[in-house]
Design a protein around this nucleic acid. Sequence first.
DNA 1: CCTTGACCCTCCAGTAACTGGAAGCCCCAT
DNA 2: ATGGGGCTTCCAGTTACTGGAGGGTCAAGG
Lengths: 145, 145
Amino acid sequence: MNIGDASTRSGLPAKTIRYYEDIELILPLRDSNGYRAFRESDIHKLTFLGRARALGFSIEDCRSLLALWEDKDRASADVRRIAGENLRIIEAKISDLIDMRDTLSHLVEACAGDQRPDCPILDRLSELGEDTKVGQIADDPKVFG
Amino acid sequence: MNIGDASTRSGLPAKTIRYYEDIELILPLRDSNGYRAFRESDIHKLTFLGRARALGFSIEDCRSLLALWEDKDRASADVRRIAGENLRIIEAKISDLIDMRDTLSHLVEACAGDQRPDCPILDRLSELGEDTKVGQIADDPKVFG
DNA sequence: CCTTGACCCTCCAGTAACTGGAAGCCCCAT
DNA sequence: ATGGGGCTTCCAGTTACTGGAGGGTCAAGG
């Protein structure tokens, strides 16, 4: 199976699949013409990766999960630990985002949004003093693309 | 004022301030020895930037907001539009993350987390078929550091 | 006057996880 | 044989910084 079909089957872009090979998450065979040759097991792994990524697992998490997945004797506790850590990270991100949403939605509501220059949003951003500080991003600025 | 004091006053790391100069968000003066010389207006801008970033505005948003902030005749509608767009993006991220949290917390609860190899988390990740697919990340994989 | 240590400077590289594009084979159908 | 799509590799760019090397500057203490 060529990369185009692997892409269709797994739902991942071909570029992403090549990248995953690059970082050795998958190791497809090669045909004599140099084309990647995907086995069913590769498709299965790619699908697994797509789902794990969609659940917020990092690439390195995925690497661990794949290893655990392939190790029939692994303890479910190992998997649960990784999943639990992610759960905590996701929950922290949710609460940070909720704080931001609340602050921002108050500001948007307070702003007339017309041709006048008065704008509570900018006023708030330029206020001086500690007490007016908006919340800091907890520990991961990458939350904001 | 040197960069160390500017950092203390604005709450931003010196590295970040240099970076902001690099991308021309601020343009501090220079002393004869080559050191950056920050004015009060620079500190004010840096503080503004710190708050806007903490509210989830991108650097390019910040650039627009700074321009609007310095333009006394701008319409508040322009500011509100930018803020409103961010609000929508933040809300979408919240709902994506909530979906992930729910799925993941069900899986973690269902997993015994002991020495046995049976693990519903891995089972779910490796299930075949469309109906078992977990949600896709909406439009911004960077949500996950 | 010299040294020490805290600052400051620039430049390069790396981060996460891809994505876009160029240059160039390969394969199949007409 | 030619055209179009698919495949290959490699390089660069994205976001918003962060870390570190290598070296200049300044103020205080001996």
